[in-house]
C-alpha cells in the first residue's frame, strides 16, 4: 500500500516550570470551564491540569490529564533533576488508580484534557499570564502507511497472544456486525 499523505494539526502546550508562580489559576479556570453549565462553579479537584507543587523544594510542575488506565504501572518513577527530587509519577499524565488526580471527586470518573475544544486557546493558557503555559500549533504531514504499520504490529501482538485463528474469527464476526 502506498502511503497517502494527510495533514494533521498538532497542538502542543509548552510548559516552562521555571516561569510558574504556583498560583493555580490554570486549575481554577479549567474546573470552571468544564463545569455544567459552563463557568457555573469552580473546584480545582475537578481540573484537568494540576500543578504538582512543593514550594519549599521549589517544585512546580503543571501536568495535564491524559489517558485513563485501569491498572497502575508495575513500577513507579521518581526523578531527581538538578538536585530537586520530584514526587512519584510527577510527570505522568495518566488518570490512574495510584493517585487521586484527574478523577471527578464524587464519581471517580476519569478526566482528560480536551484542550478546551471550541475556544481560541486552552483556558489554562489564557489565564497563565506569566507564560508558564504557552500553546503552539503546527501542521504535520502524516502518512497513512504509518498507521497501517502500527495496526499490523498490534495485530501481530494479539495473534501471538490469542493465536491467529481466534483473531481471524473475531475479525469475521466483527465485519458481519456492520
Amino acid at each position: 500500500m502506498t502511503g497517502e499523505k494527510k495533514k494533521k494539526i498538532i497542538k502542543t502546550i509548552r510548559i516552562d516550570v521555571d516561569k510558574c508562580h504556583g498560583c493555580r489559576a490554570c486549575e481554577m479556570i479549567c474546573s470552571a470551564f468544564h463545569a455544567k453549565p459552563r463557568y457555573s462553579s469552580s473546584n480545582p479537584a475537578r481540573s484537568r491540569i494540576r500543578v504538582i507543587r512543593d514550594p519549599l523544594a521549589d517544585i512546580y510542575v503543571p501536568v495535564y490529564a491524559g489517558e485513563y488506565t485501569v491498572a497502575e504501572c508495575a513500577g513507579r518513577d521518581k526523578y531527581t533533576i538538578n538536585g530537586k527530587e520530584y514526587s512519584e509519577c510527577a510527570f505522568c499524565r495518566a488518570s490512574c488508580p495510584s493517585r487521586a488526580d484527574f478523577k471527578e471527586p464524587d464519581s471517580g470518573l476519569p478526566l482528560k484534557c480536551d484542550m478546551c475544544e471550541g475556544e481560541d486557546e486552552p483556558l489554562c493558557v489564557k489565564w497563565c499570564t506569566v507564560d508558564a503555559l504557552v500553546v503552539e500549533e503546527r501542521e504535520e504531514e502524516v502518512e497513512e502507511e504509518i498507521e497501517q504499520e502500527e495496526l499490523e504490529v498490534g495485530l501481530e501482538e494479539l495473534a501471538s497472544k490469542y493465536g491467529m485463528n481466534t483473531i481471524m474469527d473475531a475479525i469475521s464476526r466483527l465485519s458481519k456486525k456492520d
Binding site: A35, Y39, S40, N43, A45, R46
Partner: peptide, 9 residues
C-alpha cells in the same frame, strides 16, 4: 474537593 457555585456565570 467540592464546588463553589456562581449565580450568574
Amino acid at each position: 474537593t467540592q464546588d463553589i457555585n456562581i449565580a450568574d456565570p
